[in-house]
């Protein structure tokens, strides 16, 4: 039995009187890609921030590698969680290489080891190091920034990856290409690696393509939790609203998708 990298029990998050997340429970086991699907504003980013310790839940429990967040030092917790932030959030004054090497540097890796890791990751995300390592974020396109954001999250080989709509702002062709690359990346590192991913999207096609499990969020509550196959026949109103998008041909999706 694979063990849970991340376990969330009855998580509630409030701003004032308003519950943004209500009694959310889910887990991500080794090798799994759990996709959080939901409309914008349903609480997806909030959930990731709670997992990362950026937002304090009102109640409930989050366990990472078996320990509750309160048992973790927030700094070392965050360095063990790779976070791809919505809109990348790169440091504008650092080169691509420095951005990617951030967590390894914080963790005091040897400079040589960091450089080798950065080159490997740049190749992995399809940015030739010779061309891109020394650039600054403002010299990159949106898609290239997202690739750097993904490489940065992967840098210190974290056991848990949080990805917040990493492909949402991209043109359909680039998005399709990155989704494909991401699938093979996940497959390559999936089983036995002790790693899991929590992937946020509002795109049901993306969810079906990437997920080992889909969690549909509605107004901060779990509406459906199912495998991609089961999700296709989910009967809730919200699930059908998302699935109805599949019937109509989407001009957004790439050819052959």
């Amino acid at each position: 039995m694979q063990c849970a990298v991340l376990e969330i029990r009855d998580l509630t998050y409030r701003i004032g009187e308003r519950s943004i997340l209500r009694e959310v429970s889910l887990e991500a086991r080794e090798g799994e890609t759990v996709v959080l699907l939901g409309r914008s504003g349903c609480g997806k980013t909030t959930l990731l921030k709670c997992v990362n310790g950026l937002l304090p839940p009102a109640s409930g429990e989050i366990r990472f590698q078996g320990r509750t967040l309160s048992e973790w030092d927030p700094i070392s917790l965050r360095r063990r969680i790779g976070y791809v932030i919505q809109d990348a959030g790169l440091f504008p004054h650092w080169t691509v290489a420095a951005n990617i090497g951030l967590v390894p540097k914080l963790e005091k890796w040897e400079p040589g080891a960091i450089a080798a890791r950065v080159d490997l990751l740049l190749d992995t995300v399809g940015l030739p190091p010779a061309q891109f390592a020394r650039r600054h974020p403002h010299e990159l396109s949106g898609g290239q920034k997202q690739r750097v954001g993904i490489a940065r999250a992967l840098a210190a080989e974290p056991p848990l990856l949080l990805l917040d709509e990493p492909f949402a702002a991209l043109d359909p062709i680039t998005r399709y290409e990155l989704q494909r690359q991401f699938v093979s990346l996940l497959r390559a590192t999936a089983s036995g690696s002790g790693k899991a991913a929590l992937f946020v999207t509002h795109d049901v096609r993306e969810a079906l393509l990437l997920a080992t499990r889909i969690v549909l969020l509605k107004d901060g509550m779990i509406d459906v939790m199912a495998s991609p196959g089961e999700f296709l026949s989910a009967r809730t109103e919200e699930a059908r609203a998302f699935l109805s998008g599949l019937d109509t041909p989407q001009h957004e999706s790439a050819p052959g998708f």
Binding site: N52, P74, I75, R79, D87, G89, P92, V103
Partner: peptide, 27 residues
């Protein structure tokens, strides 16, 4: 300093001092 950049520094596991010296002051 762009709040998104600061938040990303926190999210990556930088300490308050590291954020000050490596992110906020240079920017």
């Amino acid at each position: 300093v762009d709040p998104a950049v600061r938040e990303s520094a926190v999210a990556m596991g930088m300490t308050g001092n590291q954020i000050l010296w490596q992110v906020e002051l240079p920017l």
